[in-house]
Design a protein around this nucleic acid. Sequence first.
DNA 1: CACCAGGCAAGCC
DNA 2: GGCTTGCATGGT
Length: 295
Amino acid sequence: MKITDTGNDIVIHGAENFNLEHIFECGQCFRWNKLDANTYLGVAYGKPLRVSQNGDMITFHSTSMHDYQYIWRRYFDIDRDYGAIQAQLQRQGVAYEDAVMPQAIRHGGGIRILAQEPFEALISFIISANNNIPRIKLIVERLCMHFGDTAEYEGEIYYTFPSAERLAQCSLADLEVIRAGFRAKYILDAAAKVASGEIAPEPLRDLDYTHAKAELLKIKGVGDKVANCIVLFGLGHYSAFPVDVWVRRIVEHCYFGGSAADCDIAEFARERFGEYGGFAQQYLFYYARELKIER
DNA sequence: CACCAGGCAAGCC
DNA sequence: GGCTTGCATGGT
């Protein structure tokens, strides 16, 4: 892998196990939109970015080596060996005569688990509860437009994700414009707890998975599933295995041959995938959606 | 019109 | 403790 600075763009040649479509269509993030066949545009860490892919060449447009090194390199998890993770999950698959995981990896092998901002992950996944992805994206976008800061990029105006302090000043009436429904009160509870320091998301990175999750469960609107998403996508706890309707469907269908209890699915994931639970979950989620598995 | 969406909290027993 | 129900909103 080689990284070059063209003066306007940062270009990676020889990227492996990296596919923008897989990365942005696996449900982990809500602020990236497809511009054309090989280009996405989004905002993270207060910075808009246009990123495109041609084969193993990735171009981060209109950015600097500084921002690549300090933001995008970590955000896109560039330094992790996904080939090794996939090989490990495949070996596990062989041991259990599991044909599903190899198929899932064949379909979504370019997935990267993005290192998202913890507060953004917290609010975004509160909004995700009993909701669908297109509408989650709309609500998050309205939240940013109304309460985020502006950021200019390539001659256009974009909006950053609002801070906890800004959201904590809002009333329920203020939030009506984002049409989050019953989730609005949970957004305010989360913002208040973070703004007051009662919950400090960033330090939860240093706790173990179980304790980090337990802290998040103190927030209204954060249950087991949402907490798992936050620790996985915002705090780098890669053993987390969030079980949503799609993962439930594929796990029940392919591994249990019928319905299974929440705790049995969690135990299955722990034993089968261990520290790679989060990666396994992403491959399964992407695969289940591609298969359009019915209930 | 019913049913669903990356679930959760509150109310039951 | 486990199980059921209501929930805002928009799409099919």
